[in-house]
Computed example of a mutant assay.
Amino acid sequence: MRLDDQPSAVDVGDLRRQIDALGPWFHNLHLPGGVQTVPDHFLGGDFPNFKWQEIAPHLPHDLSGWRVLDVGCNAGFYSFELARRGASVLAIDVEELYLDQARWAAGVLGLQRQVEFRQMGVYEVAQLQERFDLVWFMGVFYHLRYPLLALDLLAQRTRRLMMFQTLTMPGQEVYPDTGDHPITEREPLLDPGWPKMAFIEHRFAGDPTNWWVPNHAGIEAMLRSSGLRVIGRPADEIYLCEPDPELAAARTLRLSGFGPAMAAVNGDAA
């Protein structure tokens, strides 16, 4: 079936057929004529619009001149919302199906000039030669086998802001002193507030691509260790960050102890 780039008139029946041909969908997109891609989402409500409504007030309303990287863009919901605010968006995903959905939806919504889609994994961001005003890193971290490497790569390409989200453990505890402890003093590692991640050996929530579930303290600690400072909590499991030169310098100094090879892996070698 041929999927038109942009229908000249709203034909609800035709849109519905094209949506079905591109399914299954994870993002519920609102299309012309009141058509939605997943009106009865298994996560409940209008996903991910209900998350966007929580996040939107924490971002500049006018993103004209901003360059955005949307990591794991799926069908493009967030890319489209950011483009509507004036941003130029590079949206990446490894799944061809999601990119097919997103490119088609961009045409239907008339946003194909503002959003570019590429099939690319998060680690391939190391090949990009540009930095971004806003890095959108939501719903990906816990699906990565090497999450801290990905966070380091993305932090290095964040010029102004990062919107970060991950599946988390319950609780908001933060252990007061993680600076240093003797090797014989390991009990603090068991404290609920010690930064940590649970490793998923097989699957979680029926999903074999879930690898890690961090706690709140672990998220904040990993963000700091990548040179980012948390400046807001738009919603549960969501962290708004900005680059912090002092944290970035501390990260570089700590990595320098591992020698030039490790620094090169993490993008610090010239």
Rank of each mutant, 00 (worst) to 15 (best):
D20M: 01
R203D: 15
I19D: 03
G44P: 14
Q18V: 04
P170Y: 10
S64W: 06
T168C: 15
F50S: 10
P147I: 11
Q156F: 07
M222A: 14
G218R: 01
G179A: 13
R118L: 14
W212K: 08
A264V: 03
F77P: 05
A155E: 04
F199I: 13
W66R: 02
L59T: 08
P24E: 03
M222S: 12
V265C: 05
P234G: 11
I238L: 14
W136P: 08
L253T: 03
R251C: 02
N210D: 05
G259W: 09
V115G: 07
A83F: 08
P243I: 12
E242A: 12
R159M: 02
S88Y: 06
G179N: 07
L31H: 07
Q156A: 00
G107H: 09
L190W: 13
Q172F: 13
W52E: 11
D11H: 10
G227Q: 07
W25R: 03
Q119W: 06
E242S: 07
F164W: 10
F80Q: 07
I92H: 06
T178P: 07
A87R: 07
G110M: 04
D93I: 04
R16L: 10
A75R: 12
R17G: 04
L167I: 15
D46A: 06
G257L: 00
L31S: 03
P245W: 09
I231G: 02
N74A: 15
M262K: 08
A83R: 04
V108T: 09
F164V: 11
P32Q: 09
D191M: 04
H27P: 09
L97I: 00
A250I: 01
Q6F: 00
W66D: 10
P57R: 08
P39Y: 02
S64V: 13
L148A: 08
S8E: 10
A102S: 10
P260L: 05
L90F: 00
V38L: 15
G206T: 13
L82F: 12
S8H: 07
E96F: 09
W212V: 08
L59F: 11
G33P: 04
M138R: 15
P192A: 09
V71E: 10
D93A: 08
E81K: 14
A9T: 02
L63N: 05
L29P: 12
Q127N: 03
V94Q: 13
P188D: 11
G193L: 11
F199L: 12
Q114A: 15
N74S: 13
E96V: 13
P176F: 14
L111Q: 00
P208F: 14
D152Q: 05
